Simulated assay, not measured.
Amino acid sequence: MKNLKHISLIILLALLCLGCQHISKSIDETFHPNDSLVKAYYKKHSFASNRAYTSTIKTNITTDTLRHQEKIVIINGDTITTTNMESKAKLLFEDIEQLKQKQSPTAAKAMQKRINDFLKEMNLPNIGPKSPPEGKTLKKARKGILNESELARAQEKLKQLPQYQGKEIFLYESVHFYQDGSINLALQQPANPAYVDAYRYRHGEWSTPKAVLARNIPRRIFPLSKINFADALKVVSNYNEKAALVEGAEPTATVYISIWDGGMRWFPGTITGSRMRYDIQFNNDGSLKSFREE
């Protein structure tokens, strides 16, 4: 009953304070060693069914240890007495109770650390996110449009699409350069000028075409040969340079081209601060054309 009392307290503490089911499971399995745990240990260390050791791997498990499983538990190859674990669990519970009574903003963090220290001492996994496997790094999210060489490659791959090879390409309505590295645009079909298809560039490849319900096509097309995708970087740079001078203004990581009446214009076209608003315009090559207060 004493064992069960301590086990219940630890499980309740883990569930209420941290909501970590795997902690309660680990602790419960630690205080209640069962046949499956021992069998798994035998299998790992090559014990035969008659408990004879069948491998050359060294082990510190003795016959006496195997006979007294009710008093000794095996955790990751280490042997620990349940009496020792009970005393440490009792101290853990007392420490947690004291921290709960403080009711300070740092109490939760302190409780988590105390439990992690206990689990470490018992050779159990700590609470918290797992570290990535050795040799692997987490992929960071992109915070801006593609770089110059990537933009040039995207434009060249667009020209190499089978349906457009060797033909003049006309962009329809707009071209969007997003901060996740994707590009959205639409193209007039060379074989049927009344049709327009949308494409998306992502992860180094253009998507398959998707039909667009297009209107006023003659007034909304512009030749790809007169646009340099890499100029989008100039627009970002020039815009953010001016935005830094305006109180309360935010920088941009996304730009786009708008097409109308045979011409094109880069956007964003305004910089809005906490006190002032400015109109900003760019030349086709991305260089600054004008910047004035509205």
Rank of each mutant, 00 (worst) to 15 (best):
N3T: 07
H6G: 01
I10M: 06
H22E: 15
S24Y: 05
K25N: 14
S26G: 15
E29Q: 10
T30H: 02
T30D: 02
H32S: 06
D35N: 06
L37Q: 15
Y42Q: 05
K43H: 09
K44A: 08
Y53L: 14
I57L: 10
K58V: 15
K58P: 08
I61W: 04
I61E: 02
T63N: 07
T65F: 09
L66T: 03
R67W: 03
I74N: 01
I74G: 00
G77S: 05
D78T: 07
T79D: 01
T79E: 04
K90Q: 09
K90L: 09
F93V: 11
E94D: 12
L99Y: 09
Q101H: 08
Q103T: 10
T106M: 13
A107N: 09
A110G: 01
Q112R: 13
Q112K: 11
Q112S: 07
M122Q: 09
M122N: 01
P125L: 02
K130F: 08
T137F: 15
K139L: 14
K140M: 14
A141H: 07
K143F: 11
N147I: 02
N147Q: 07
E156C: 11
L161D: 12
L161G: 11
Y164C: 03
G166W: 04
V175K: 01
Y178G: 00
S182A: 04
S182I: 00
I183H: 05
A186V: 10
Q188Y: 09
Q189G: 10
Y201W: 02
R202E: 13
R202Q: 13
H203N: 09
H203Y: 06
P209L: 12
K210D: 06
N216K: 15
R219D: 13
R219S: 13
I221Q: 14
K226T: 12
N228Q: 15
A232K: 00
V236S: 04
T254P: 00
S258W: 14
G263M: 10
W266E: 01
F267H: 07
R275C: 03
N284M: 14
N284D: 15
G286P: 05
K289M: 00
K289N: 11
E294I: 14
E294D: 13
